[in-house]
């Protein structure tokens, strides 16, 4: 197959989309959150297991586009063993990257091209928003 003009659908993104990691629901989740993309109706559910402020495990569930799926796959991997504050920090770096002001760490840098696809940025933010919603104190 010839090289594609877009680096948005890079091999990194496509590989995660084909075989996403941490897909499903944690049976022993302590936190659960959902986020929705109004543009396409995609819904993503995220389950987390926390001990204190440390995230021990994360999984995601839902049918979504390649961008959302790949990002959810990366995020759930990045959150294993991370402090809960990591979600917000990473999201901030992502939005800064979309403005051209930063480069996100590791594989998340694969989404830099979203700077030129404003309509698709929400797709990559969806897993972060599901995680933030999971971590939000509930009544």
């Amino acid at each position: 197959m010839s090289a594609h003009p877009s680096t948005l659908y890079s091999e990194t993104v496509l590989a995660h989309n084909r075989a996403p990691r941490h897909c499903g629901c944690l049976a022993d989740a302590t936190h659960r959150g959902v986020a929705e993309n109004a543009l396409c109706g995609d819904q993503l559910a995220l389950t987390l297991r926390l001990r204190g402020d440390l995230i021990e495990a994360a999984m995601f569930d839902g049918e979504s586009c390649a961008i959302t799926t790949a990002c959810a796959s990366m995020l759930t991997a990045a959150l294993h063993g991370a402090p809960r504050a990591r979600v917000g920090e990473l999201r901030m770096v992502m939005t800064a990257m979309f403005r051209g002001d930063a480069t996100a760490p590791g594989e998340f840098a694969a989404f830099a091209e979203l700077r030129h696809h404003p309509a698709r940025q929400r797709c990559a933010l969806l897993p972060f928003d599901a995680a933030l919603s999971a971590l939000q104190p509930k009544e």
């Binding site: 003009p5 877009s6 396409c40």
Partner: peptide, 12 residues
């Protein structure tokens, strides 16, 4: 194939 992925890739 998700609709959004198809539309973005078709645009290319």
């Amino acid at each position: 194939a998700h609709a959004h992925d198809l539309a973005t890739l078709l645009d290319h």
